[in-house]
């Protein structure tokens, strides 16, 4: 891996980014001014010190870029890491930002009619996370038929597309406004620093980057 080339660091558009920027700054990654310019359509930005190239892509694509080694490191929610389960990804640091949860929700009025205790062996689920959802239901002896949607999951039950949804929940307001209630929590989600496995082992700059982020977030490191 050419040491002279800048490291590529992938960050997700949207929810996590606002919280991630200050953490990145403390770890020494400050994007150039153009990054904050709303009118700028560029997707790739230099860092202030030129040592890093920052790319802004969709959250799911952050994981793919890093797993492939096209970016050496990045920040993404643990929901995305879990959904892909890429063997090439390491998630060495929990950044303790972007907290929310991945939950099962269903229509308020339909509750109890076929709740999970008196359930059928088949359920139709609308979700952005077909892998996590089917694994979770599988462990409960239910075959989940997942309908993959990319947004507005909350509409699916009322329009008859699926009986339940699996989606990210933070305050629960969106669910409530769409007549849904949260029935089960699948996982707690927070943003992680992710790095490519081969890059960590072959490029010393990646290990240093991990150390810088680790220093920001105290974990149970032994004395």
């Amino acid at each position: 891996m050419g040491q002279s080339r800048p490291l590529t660091f992938a960050v997700p558009k949207g929810r996590i980014l606002e919280e991630a920027l200050p953490v990145m700054a403390r770890a020494g990654i400050v994007p150039e001014a153009a990054f904050h310019d709303k009118g700028n359509r560029a997707l790739s930005f230099a860092s202030d010190d030129g040592a890093t190239r920052i790319i802004r892509v969709r959250a799911f694509d952050v994981a793919t870029f890093v797993a492939f080694g096209a970016a050496q490191a990045g920040i993404v929610g643990s929901d995305v890491i879990e959904e892909f389960d890429y063997s090439e990804l390491y998630a060495p640091v929990d950044l303790a930002i972007g907290h929310c949860r991945l939950s099962v929700a269903e229509p308020r009025e339909g509750q109890g009619a076929d709740d999970l205790s008196a359930r059928a062996s088949h359920l139709r689920i609308a979700t952005k996370y077909p892998n996590i959802a089917s694994r979770w239901f599988e462990r409960r002896g239910i075959q989940a038929e997942c309908v993959k949607l990319n947004g507005a999951m909350e509409l699916a039950p009322s329009l008859g597309l699926s009986g339940r949804i699996v989606d990210l929940v933070s305050s629960g307001r969106t669910l409530a406004e769409n007549g849904l209630v949260e029935t089960d929590r699948i996982m707690e989600v927070s943003a992680r620093l992710i790095v490519n496995r081969a890059a960590l082992k072959t490029d010393p700059r990646v290990a240093k980057l991990v150390d810088r982020f680790r220093a920001l977030v105290p974990v149970a490191e032994p004395a």
């Binding site: 063997s87 998630a91 060495p92 929990d94 680790r214 974990v219 149970a220 490191e221």
Partner: peptide, 14 residues
């Protein structure tokens, strides 16, 4: 496998 220190502690692997 995922080098996740936080989750490792949570899993009882301190």
């Amino acid at each position: 496998d995922s080098k996740d220190a936080g989750a490792l502690v949570a899993a009882g692997g301190e």
